[in-house]
């Protein structure tokens, strides 16, 4: 990572400039008012919340990335981040049985796989700033897909209960009977990330690259870092969705291949 440091000046907005940028919120507020979207409070609250959260993270990162701070603190931060992400995921997908444990396993597995590749092959040097930022990328970018795959799979097993039971009645195993639903749920969750990866550079300059360019890093270096990050995100999203899908399937069926997932609205026969 030492290669990314260059002599280009860092784009450092002044506090006054930040306030000026904040006036752009007024544009969103004006649009909400003009179109009667009823989002004014929400927009204001999200802007204030982002300010407070980023300020707090700035303080924490200042501590974590200080030269005198042990990297163990960074590992602890990663653990807290993963726990918080699992809690958020479970809150967003309450209909998925055991989602906290499932997503905790998924984020952990994804982190282990992707960071092992990046650090193990020396793509990045293992230090506080790479550990904290890359772990954040893994968890943050996997969250939406994790919620989506869990919810989608539970919904489709409930909606297509007749099909699942028809397959089970043919002697299919739970894995075979649920394969079409697992496939379509994982596809649904993965496609947005695949599309984002395809569009990168053409219609989208991703955050990490923008950050590096604003920090004065040479474009060629920013591109290399961004590519590694994109692959990291793609790998982590694939890992988390696979782990969650397999976990949901395991909970939806008994060991003797019966569908035991409740279907509240389903009339289960006379």
């Amino acid at each position: 990572m030492s290669a990314v440091l260059t002599a280009s000046p860092v784009a450092d907005p002044s506090w006054l400039g930040l306030v000026a940028a904040g006036t752009l919120i007024a544009v969103a507020l004006a649009l909400s008012a003009a179109q009667q979207l009823g989002l004014g409070r929400s927009i204001l609250w999200s802007a204030v919340r982002a300010l407070v959260q980023l300020a707090a993270v700035g303080v924490v990162l200042g501590f974590l990335l200080a030269e005198s701070t042990s990297i163990l603190w960074s590992w602890a931060w990663v653990a807290v981040m993963v726990l918080f992400a699992a809690w958020t995921t479970a809150r967003r997908a309450p209909e998925v049985p055991g989602m906290f444990t499932l997503s905790l396993s998924a984020y952990t597995a994804s982190g282990v796989v992707t960071l092992a590749v990046l650090f193990g092959f020396g793509v990045f040097e293992l230090e506080a700033r790479t550990l904290v930022t890359l772990s954040g990328m893994v968890v943050g970018n996997s969250l939406a897909a994790t919620v989506l795959v869990g919810r989608r799979l539970v919904e489709s097993l409930q909606e297509r209960r007749d099909e699942v039971e028809a397959r089970l009645a043919l002697g299919n195993t739970a894995a075979e009977a649920s394969a079409p639903m697992v496939r379509s749920s994982v596809r649904t969750a993965l496609i947005p990330q695949v599309e984002t990866t395809k569009a990168v550079g053409i219609v989208l300059l991703p955050g990490a690259m923008v950050g590096l360019l604003l920090a004065g890093v040479e474009p060629a270096v920013a591109v290399k870092v961004q590519l590694a990050v994109m692959y990291l995100i793609l790998g982590s999203v694939a890992t988390t969705t696979a782990v969650v899908a397999l976990g949901v399937r395991r909970r939806a069926f008994s060991a003797d291949h019966r569908l035991v997932l409740d279907t509240p609205s389903h009339d289960r026969g006379s």
């Binding site: 007749d162 099909e163 039971e165 028809a166 397959r167 089970l168 009645a169 043919l170 002697g171 299919n172 195993t173 079409p180 003797d256 291949h257 019966r258 026969g269």
Partner: peptide, 20 residues
């Protein structure tokens, strides 16, 4: 094995459930 039992005891359901 329940899968072996189900292959021996076939079942036709109320609604015709055909697959894609």
């Amino acid at each position: 094995d329940p899968c072996v039992l189900r292959r021996s005891v076939g079942m036709v359901f109320q609604q015709p459930t055909v697959f894609e």
